[in-house]
Nucleic acid binder design. Sequence first.
DNA 1: CATGAATGAGACTTCATTCAT
DNA 2: TATGAATGAAGTCTCATTCAT
Lengths: 206, 206, 206, 206
Amino acid sequence: MAIEERKLKEKLQRYNAILDAAEKIMKASGVYNLNMDLVAKETELAKGTLYLYFKSKEEILAALSIKSRNLLLTHFEKSTLNIDNPIEQLKAIAFASFNFFKKYPFYFELIAIYEVNNKLEETAEIQKSINKLINFVNGITIKAKEKGLLNIDLDPIQYTFCLWGMLIGMSQLVKVRGAVMEDYLGFTEKDIINTFMIQLEMGMKK
Amino acid sequence: MAIEERKLKEKLQRYNAILDAAEKIMKASGVYNLNMDLVAKETELAKGTLYLYFKSKEEILAALSIKSRNLLLTHFEKSTLNIDNPIEQLKAIAFASFNFFKKYPFYFELIAIYEVNNKLEETAEIQKSINKLINFVNGITIKAKEKGLLNIDLDPIQYTFCLWGMLIGMSQLVKVRGAVMEDYLGFTEKDIINTFMIQLEMGMKK
Amino acid sequence: MAIEERKLKEKLQRYNAILDAAEKIMKASGVYNLNMDLVAKETELAKGTLYLYFKSKEEILAALSIKSRNLLLTHFEKSTLNIDNPIEQLKAIAFASFNFFKKYPFYFELIAIYEVNNKLEETAEIQKSINKLINFVNGITIKAKEKGLLNIDLDPIQYTFCLWGMLIGMSQLVKVRGAVMEDYLGFTEKDIINTFMIQLEMGMKK
Amino acid sequence: MAIEERKLKEKLQRYNAILDAAEKIMKASGVYNLNMDLVAKETELAKGTLYLYFKSKEEILAALSIKSRNLLLTHFEKSTLNIDNPIEQLKAIAFASFNFFKKYPFYFELIAIYEVNNKLEETAEIQKSINKLINFVNGITIKAKEKGLLNIDLDPIQYTFCLWGMLIGMSQLVKVRGAVMEDYLGFTEKDIINTFMIQLEMGMKK
DNA sequence: CATGAATGAGACTTCATTCAT
DNA sequence: TATGAATGAAGTCTCATTCAT
């Protein structure tokens, strides 16, 4: 079955090549400027071939969005690795978010787009990737609760969602209004993130 | 000058008719599906006529977005009217946001779109409407600080922006994930808003 | 009848104001960018009013074109005033053309457009203004012939037309290719005009 | 590779079909009335398909303009083939121009449009086609100079440009004023061309 | 006479998707 | 599987001219 294996491998390579191309294009010209002609040119595949690997343009977006979330998850994991205190872990996650979104604005867009634009259909797979993120964070929140470190009035799963919502919101704020804040209001991205972190810590602690 | 007056009035009516039509269309098929043909059909005006009132499609969006922000501002104002304590006022504003966005999801989208999509140009007028909102909230935050009610580590203007970011983020969360939460996780929008409010209050207080 | 007189005068003033406005606009943004909205704004008249003075946009163009030709005619007249020899007069006319077109590129365009674009209808009045020019030149050509100064094989009226054709062609050449000639070929507008004049003189003399 | 070959051939055929259609349309309704809807209808292709072959409407115009110039060049070449004397060759070229422009008034328009309308961008390829024409003529002018047949005061390259300018101007004249001359002035196109040729010969000879 | 709001036919271009080979 | 030519609906915007007041 070596032949089949090789074929499978080749298929996977193509699949990834398409994703890479789409990513490269979007990084260069923005998420909204992706189009299938560009992907075809970049991959040196025929346009029709793209549709053998992805049912639609939207599916490419979805795949990249999932990839982004998985990447974010690994960042979350790394950031909490050497920390014991769940509260500190949650704070580390918040920091990791901001760093991630600052470092990879493009991945942020791909994650946020599904939190915003309800024109895009959320498939089961996207849901799954979201859930993985939420579950990871929620595991920590639950631990915090169990250890009595979390404000007693906060329900873990609900708080986890709050955290996610706040992080997305704050990241957008920094992204869209960051320049204005620095230019006209005299404080930096770091400052506002710091301010947010203070209120976050105060808000979650017992 | 009765004639001139009447003409002016008629012009304003047309202007509003166009906005109303655009609003109706977007409510029905989403903010991203607005197009000038539809507006023309809905208003029963010629396409060219639309361009006498708005220089571009984007200008229609901008006008509605400003309208939305102004409306939100009046909700903020009303919600704080009979409250003395600035902290309670800030909480009232948070509640007002959620209510507003629940009641007018469409207006929320029109506000949020400029906080998200950096393809849309922000004109001076849009900026102004944003500033009006921010300034209103900031006035209260400052008062809270002056009265020693705000956490001493929080800078008022920075905290105001944080609040705005969190509110937008939480509103999106509720909007996009509300159904999932209710269907699969066993808590309601109200619950999560409540959870958020708890952490908010704890986070901002001294 | 003082009232009627004044009204007539006012009408003429409006008529000229429209032409002036059109001229100003075209000078600023090119012959092809004239549009009635711009003219209305510049004259501070209503768009409908323009149509009381000119049947169409094309008629404005025609009027200005006639004006241009009349102006060119006066330049021809002046240039020949103090010259006796008809041959020298014809040369003076050629020089006057180049100078005029260099000084008023806009008027040149308005004249040339009717020599080129057969989409534009030539009214009787335009014809008349052309004829005035041709006749003026032709008068000189005839004199040259009578005095035995013109090449015997050249028919005056035919030669006059040739002259007109060559002058328009050479002016266009200088206008369109002038920059290229100076930048890449090492000779100036003056040079090529000079070369043309040499061949012109040799070609017409006995 | 027969398949690839055939495909290439078909592509070329489509390309030419589009050009032919554009040509037909322009012949019928004028150069300025070309539009993509008409081309689509005439070729029985979808509008989008046209854009697979030409990036824009202007590119169709450019392609036809180049084609016209190349065709004119072959006429120049043929017309000089059996002539030794460079002066006679230049005269032959002038005649060839008039014949060509009489025979293909449409091609003339496509050439002249770039000599007149500075709204159209001249691409490198258009420049090249112009240069080919100029160079061909200039080669002969130089030869004439070398053989001492050209008026000693005329610089070859400058004279070549003059010739081009005069020919375009005269062709326009004949085209636009031809009818008038025949109807009211009692001489024919041939007559005036003849007159021009006389002055041309006299003007260039030593 | 004057107004200026309204018209609506165009015009160009883009792009996700299909399908015959 | 792979190709890539073809599709055609969709979309934004312009502007000369008209006409009711």
